[in-house]
């Protein structure tokens, strides 16, 4: 699985200590740097199959702001982990911005000079992604998509037909259907665990 750290910040370049320390600490990750939020968001959308951790600055001198980018990403996927960064500490953020961040799943916050915290968060998020069912399901769906010639009409729930792409969308957006799939997978795991013998 490809793993990438995306840094979206208009005040950083590839020589920035923050970027260099991340690259040195996690050589297995490709570190991509974007100076405007739109390009960063587009890159994320083009690479949803990769395991991505995003460091997203709150404030940009031009274009969309960090909170707007966060909302755009969350409309499409809840499975990308996002670390919001700012020169200010959390208490200096506006109430509206705080509310936006708190109300999204998988959001972290650091000041943009705190490389130690960034390093610790990458480790923590990576461990989370390793054991999270929704991430595993997303990966499995991607494999099915590549292996299955019958991508259209893969599953029917009542009168609703889903292709694998559509199932992936449900999982990424944590819709009612996507959450049902997660629940059903957990129930099957429990069922198999508790069954004393599985005979064919």
């Amino acid at each position: 699985m490809n793993r990438e750290v995306i840094v979206i910040d208009d005040n950083m370049d590839s020589k920035d200590p923050f970027v260099r320390v991340l690259q040195k600490t996690y050589p297995e990750y490709a570190i991509k740097l974007f100076n405007d939020a739109n390009s960063g968001v587009q890159y994320i959308f083009d690479n949803l199959t990769k395991r991505i951790i995003v460091f997203l600055d709150c404030r940009f001198d031009a274009g969309i702001q960090g909170i707007e980018a966060l909302n755009i990403i969350r409309q499409k996927t809840s499975l990308v982990y996002i670390v919001m960064m700012s020169a200010n500490n959390l208490l200096q953020q506006s109430e509206a911005h705080l509310s936006e961040m708190i109300n999204h799943h998988g959001i972290y916050y650091i000041t943009n000079t705190d490389t130690d915290k960034a390093i610790a968060l990458i480790k923590e998020i990576n461990e989370l992604m390793d054991c999270k069912l929704d991430c595993a399901l997303e990966e499995w769906m991607e494999i099915q998509k590549n292996q299955n010639s019958n991508n259209e009409n893969y599953l029917n729930i009542g009168s609703q037909s889903f292709s694998i792409d559509e199932l992936l969308k449900e999982i990424r957006t944590k819709s009612e259907v996507g959450r049902k799939f997660e629940k059903d997978l957990i129930q099957l795991t429990i069922y198999l665990l508790l069954k004393k013998t599985v005979s064919i």
């Binding site: 399901l137 499995w140 769906m141 099915q144 599953l155 049902k180 799939f181 059903d184 997978l185 129930q187 099957l188 069922y191 198999l192 599985v198 005979s199 064919i200």
Partner: peptide, 18 residues
């Protein structure tokens, strides 16, 4: 059927269980 199919396709098997 669940015992027969879960190794091949865990996801579709979970829907059988549902």
């Amino acid at each position: 059927c669940i015992a027969q199919s879960y190794e091949d396709n865990y996801f579709l098997t979970s829907q059988l269980l549902s």
